[in-house]
Amino acid sequence: MTEQVSIALGQGSSCWGCFQSLIDIHLKLADVLPLLDIKYWQAVVDYKLSDLESYPDKSIAVGVYEGMARTEEDVHLLKTLRAKCKILIAFGTCSCFGGIPGMANFYDIEDCYDVKFRNNKTFSDGEVPSENVPPIESIVRPNRHYVDFDVYLPGCPPTSSLILTALTSLIEGKEIELPPHTVCHYCSREKKETPVPEILRPFKGNADPDRCLLEQGYICLGSATWGLCEGQCVNKGVTCRGCFGPPPPITQDHGAASISMLGSYAPLLPDELKEQVPDPIGYFWRFDYPSSHLGNMRIKREDAKNAK
């Protein structure tokens, strides 16, 4: 038997979907799990945070961090994993780019508190909890603002086969090689290079099942998105919303690239586009606002406010 690889898996603020996707390698678990010496994985094994903190620095081979850092505790766990692990993986889109919960940066944290804790349809005059809970960061910063990562594995969630490829490479000590194509490469729909006459919301009409959804007027981010998903949605009649982020180099601005893509497909006047695309920031920066240029300006604004 190959020697076990030590691994610590941490969860920031997230949905656990990336870990569910790991579980979904199904019977391959029987091959992979025995090769891993799990030092920390709160949802699966019974070690506590103090156990993780007690390991010597760089004593664990691989660290995996799922989710974004919403609380001080999340930031602490992220930094602890970085300190204890030789290789650190940003696991999933939240960890790579901020993810869907990064959309909270569209608003001020006080406005978030209002609907969550102070007043909503089922309560009124509540207060923000503060006893035995970690303080909430006023803004979502990309995880790479706090630590350096060695590997980025995007996807909401990364597919099970992608995770298996990555784990196998790590266990064998090899570089992870990933194809650079966009979603369109995996889409079976036909492109006819015809201009988009009008932008349609996704519930409108019934799409031709054989033709490019974007050319039919449905906003689809496939041509600006890394195709590690292998086209799961587009091949089932569903437009891409960009959940794997941009293709390599992944530091490029996914939202800006998506808008530029739309511009080249839909030669509409700016006023028409504005009218027909009701929520550009929510369409084009849904998964990566905190790590985009726009999102970075938002974070700087927050820093300026807090510096006062």
Binding site: D74, Y107, P134
Partner: peptide
């Protein structure tokens, strides 16, 4: 020990 404010950022979305 965590929350992500979905109720807020759903506002403004189609």
């Amino acid at each position: 020990g965590s929350t992500r404010f979905f109720e807020k950022f759903l506002e403004g979305r189609p």
